[in-house]
């Protein structure tokens, strides 16, 4: 019998080449970081169970889930709005997996593991907004899209979940983006093209921004 290896790999394993990309001789205006090995659970309220799910989520995380396009930060997870009565639970290190979340939330909600179905990309730097403005019609100006703002939207005809995380230590904004794994490589190349003129610093990380 054939033997299989099921070692999980990122969809950007080949496309992502760490280091400098694009314009030379200037300071990198955009940092593109793929965040790997996260746990991502989609939670969707069952019919008529929206209020009950909010209660169960509060009991588990200490906060109610976002009921508008927002991302809510808890000490060890981010709850990201993904549509009416549904949200993602993003975390690291096996703290909130199907195994641990299902007993708490599966009464009022359907849960679905998306950990290997999405790619998580973090975009920051002085030219991050200018880069994203080429790809997105969302107003990402600081006043219109503050920390914790989120959007279910499209970039380059590809559905993405976009939200603003906490600022970098140098106070520049950080935009996080979840994209379907099979579309990730296409969007990655589009983002590299959009950012090339500003010089890009490419990396991957195991840490959530």
């Amino acid at each position: 019998m054939a033997e299989f290896s099921w070692a999980p790999r990122s969809s950007l394993e080949k496309a992502l080449v760490a280091g400098a990309h694009g314009a030379r001789g200037i300071e990198a205006g955009v940092s593109l970081t793929e965040i790997r090995n996260f746990d991502l659970i989609q939670v969707m309220a069952r019919r008529g169970k929206g209020a009950e799910l909010a209660k169960a989520t509060k009991a588990r995380f200490g906060v109610v889930p976002p009921d508008a396009p927002k991302a809510v930060q808890t000490p060890d997870a981010t709850l990201i709005w993904s549509g009416p009565d549904q949200f993602f639970v993003l975390s690291k290190g096996g703290k909130h997996t199907m195994l641990t979340l299902a007993p708490a939330l599966s009464g009022p909600a359907s849960l679905s593991d998306q950990s290997h179905a999405r790619v998580l990309i973090s975009i920051s730097g002085a030219k991050a907004r200018t880069t994203l403005a080429k790809l997105s019609s969302i107003d990402l100006y600081a006043g219109a899209f503050p920390i914790g703002a989120a959007a279910a939207t499209s970039m380059d005809h590809t559905s993405v979940t976009l939200w603003r995380g906490g600022d970098r230590p140098d106070e520049l904004a950080v935009f996080n983006l979840l994209v379907f794994a099979t579309f990730a490589e296409s969007l990655w190349h589009t983002m590299l093209d959009a950012a090339a003129e500003f010089s890009v610093d490419i990396s991957h990380s195991e840490e959530l921004a």
């Binding site: 008529g48 169970k49 929206g50 209020a51």
Partner: peptide, 9 residues
Amino acid sequence: GAGAAKVGA
């Protein structure tokens, strides 16, 4: 049907 989780809530 959109936002069905609020139906009957």
